Amino acid sequence: MLTFISYWRAAAIVLNDLGSSAFYAAGIAEQAIGKSAPWFIVGVMLFSFTVRAVYVESCSMFVRGGVYRVVKEALGGTLAKISVSALMFDYILTGPISGVSAGQYIAGLINDTFITADSHGWIPRSMHLMFHGTPRVDVNWTSVVFAVAVTMYFWWQNTKGIQESSEKALRVMQITTVMVVILLAWSAVTLLKQGYQPVPLPTPDNLKFSPEALGFLKHTDLAHDLARKFGLFGILIAFGHSVLAMSGEESLAQVNRELAHPKLKNLKRAAII
């Protein structure tokens, strides 16, 4: 028996995919291109609205408009296979990154909590002897264990079907929304108390590429002052390192098949949310 989901559940699935990148995409971009990264993240997100419109239009043209079907009908079977392969690679790549990033956040929170508790004398002496000092967890191993556990859990949930997994995705999104509200409120308080530093404008002079961001160019003479010599090329590199913020838009094509009637109207609602 076929089951269909509401646009709220569809939006939750897409937001879980899209929102997971939000917690590390900016950090990766800043490490690669410097302090001007937020401008490029904003540019990528504005560009994502046009990509989203294309997804909605293409999905509405086919009854079962998954990625493979849409690309096959539009561009042929070969490009459809390449597209699906790229999509699978994207999931395989961003899934572990999201899980490990979340694990690092949790490990950091645990270690900071231990440090704060130790400064107030709340840590028993026996734990000090056990850890040879302030208790702490290994960030790397904690991240790996957390990522594996989360991946296995959601794989198990997905085997139950879209109705069950979408409900869990909606619950996760509700909890995440509360966390984001707390984070924004905390950020506002921090800005009021400590002030802020303006983000440098995205000009070639403000782009500072890391060796990893330059790739093979780091071994050439272009590695020095690349952005100033080739302004547009440098800006394109910066956008390339920021495009990870758009990861998750492709989930619209996946949930389109499971949307309840009226499908197109609900797809548009999910895209807006």
Rank of each mutant, 00 (worst) to 15 (best):
A102G: 14
M152W: 12
Y196D: 12
L79C: 01
A270V: 08
I123C: 06
T142P: 10
G195F: 11
G215N: 09
L46Q: 10
I28C: 03
V199C: 10
L207S: 03
A22T: 04
D90Q: 05
A149L: 12
Y153N: 00
G19F: 02
G43T: 06
L207K: 05
S165H: 04
Y55A: 11
V199P: 11
M1C: 01
H224I: 11
D138N: 15
E164C: 05
T3R: 04
V137W: 06
M45Y: 15
N140K: 08
A245S: 08
P200C: 05
I182V: 11
Q31Y: 12
K218I: 14
L18N: 01
L244Q: 07
A37N: 08
Q157R: 05
N16G: 10
I82L: 06
P200V: 06
F154E: 08
P262S: 13
A25E: 04
F239E: 06
W186A: 15
P124G: 06
W39T: 13
L46Y: 10
N111W: 10
V139C: 04
N140A: 07
H241L: 07
G215H: 09
M127R: 11
G66A: 01
F114E: 09
R52N: 12
S85M: 06
I273L: 10
K160A: 14
G108A: 10
A149K: 00
Y105M: 09
S119G: 05
Q254K: 00
L252P: 03
E250A: 11
A32M: 10
V172I: 15
H241F: 15
F230H: 12
L222N: 02
A117M: 13
I272L: 11
L191V: 15
I82Y: 02
K229N: 05
L184R: 00
A238Y: 00
L252Q: 04
T50F: 14
G108S: 15
V199I: 12
E258H: 13
R136W: 15
I110W: 14
A213H: 04
W186C: 12
A26F: 13
G195K: 03
N16A: 04
F23R: 00
V14S: 00
V243Y: 01
G103E: 14
L129P: 04
E212P: 00
L236D: 03
I33N: 08
G248S: 02
A37G: 10
T203C: 03
A270N: 03
S210G: 01
F146C: 14
E249A: 04
N16C: 08
M127A: 15
S143N: 09
W155R: 11
A80I: 03
D17S: 04
A12Y: 02
I123Q: 07
N111K: 07
E73H: 01
D17A: 01
K263Y: 11
S251W: 03
N158A: 13
P211F: 14
A102K: 01
P198K: 10
K160S: 14
L214V: 11
V178P: 05
L217F: 10
L222K: 01
R125D: 15
L214Y: 10
P96W: 00
F154N: 06
I115R: 09
K72D: 08
S60A: 12
P204A: 15
A238S: 02
G34M: 12
S60F: 02
P204E: 13
S210H: 02
N206W: 09
G195A: 13
K265D: 06
M45P: 07
S119I: 13
F154V: 11
S187I: 07
G240P: 00
F23H: 03
A11I: 02
L87H: 01
